[in-house]
Design a protein around this nucleic acid. Sequence first.
DNA 1: GAGCACTGC
Length: 661
Amino acid sequence: MPQQFWKPGTDKPRILEDEEGGVVFFAPSLSSASSSSSRFGYASIGSQRQRLPVYKYRTAILYLVETHATTIIVGETGSGKTTQIPQYLKEAGWADGGRVIACTQPRRLAVQAATMIKFLTDGVLLREIMDDPLLTKYSVIMVDEAHERSISTDILLGLLKKIQRRRPELRLIISSATIEAKSMSDFFQTSKKHRGPEDHELVPRKVPAVLSVEGRGFNVQIHYVVEPVSDYVQATVSTVLSIHDQEPAGDILVFLTGQDDIDAAIQLLAEEAHASRKISSGLIVLPLYSSLPRAEQDLVFSPTPRGKRKVVISTNIAETSLTLEGVQFYNPISDIENLVVAPISKASARQRAGRAGRVRPGKCYRLYTEEYFVNEMSSVGIPEMQRSKLVSCVIQLKALGIDNILGFDWPASPPPEAMIRALEVLYSLGVLDDDAKLTSPVGFQAAEIPLDPMISKMILSSNQLGCSEEIITIAAILSIQSIWVSGKGVQKELDEAKLRFAAAEGDHVTFLNVYKGFLQSGKSSQWCHKNYMNYQAMKKVIEIREQLRRTALRLGIVLRSCEGDILAVRKAVTAGFFANASRLEAFSHNGMYKTVRGSQEVYIHPSSVLFRVNPKWVIYHSLVSTDRQYMRNAMTIDPSWLTEAAPHFFQNLRRPDPIAH
DNA sequence: GAGCACTGC
């Protein structure tokens, strides 16, 4: 048994047992916090740590972790739980004897490592399960931000529940927002079989404990509009101006759907502020979205000069990915799903409101009615598992030896159709065999590559075709958002820059030209600037490429350049993406294509070098749905390559007839 | 003539 923090005979923290399902709540009291610090000799630890809200729950957390297999910590961000709880566990002995405490996050984080405490992403821990199925080196695993419900988090939760049955000494801490706590608790509570001896004093209780930890957040006053607004960009601008006119100092954070709305709002704000001279000065308006160049993004972090008010108009990037300390007012609208504007969830609205109360009390202006919030908005967002492609998820579970994927104990079951679709894709790629088992070697190799299986297949095929260096470059570029700077204002220049690199074969080959140019420039940021390329993105490409190179070497792929034999490159791309083929409709005047697989109406995306070129046959990397279905990143092919790459796949389709044109 | 955000040995 691990060395224990709480011992019988010492004071128990004040715990209130809940009658329903044994969920435990803790009533915080300052006296218990101060006594615990002196009792265990941590009084000398910097008072900064003690000032964090989570500090007064230290004893309770350690007690619950010791006595429960799973502890669910409920609390909004800002409590200090991410950095502090692993420290408390370490101090209490959970990292003794060579054991390690893990803390996972859905995204990469700033805090990277501490002795015997490992901060990592959910995805990386999943990969570790492949080598060490029971995660034996860990004594405690804390899954942070579990309420975000990314696919990786959900798989991880399902697997951890399984691992726990085999390792009763393993402790889990699930950190979640209030709204998800009940479902997390239910998930870990139901154990279909293997009910251990509950009463044995050395065995932790199976029923999860739920501990509510207050954040450092200040009160945020919520305002709703009385009547629904018809033009939310206009309403946004009016609200910002009236806040500026009537409220005391404090910055404003506005959430809008995307770059278009943000640019429109900024322009309108400038016009209206100018028109009313009284308030034309004093506003610093800044956009914020991911494709914005880094230097411009960083502007939002610069301190607001005295007498000024900063207005940050953002996408949902400001909801989870970064924190703006000075924000006091905020204004939420809508989120995007499948790039269609849709209402956000209540949970998301709360998260956004919380952004206004980080350093002092704030106000939140919701540009929808309270009635709409209460009755129309769903309480939580749909977990990614239930709305996304599952190919990567399926291949990972297969690699972990979990064959009955539909029967897996998920926190949220994925839709069976999506699962079946994923199985079909993997089968057609030759990653799964007739029995839905990973094939050897392709399936096992593809599972080792941390990318979409179609990309993995492309990389594996490049080995035989002798163009692995080129394909790895393409894979790296396809896995980032965009290598170009974001348009608007420089559209013409951007288009011209693209033409300098454009290849008749399409975007994939264009990427190779760009990468070559970047290398020849000595990876110069000035060169990027001159060519309307995003330097940060190119640096990221180099990084990912290096990682893929190492993976490829480990898989025994010979790194070789095809020295300009573009045919080999195109065939390798086809080997991975044959299922994404489409054909230009005969006599189409508007560039309409039909997909080979589903006869779906699609168009080449305007960002593609093949836009308006409209070659007869293309394969695309992905489809994006806005007003039309657009093919992003398209490449010309010879249709005979399709049947060559995947004869069985095209045999079963109704008259794909690729040869006939 | 389009453009929400993440991640992955």
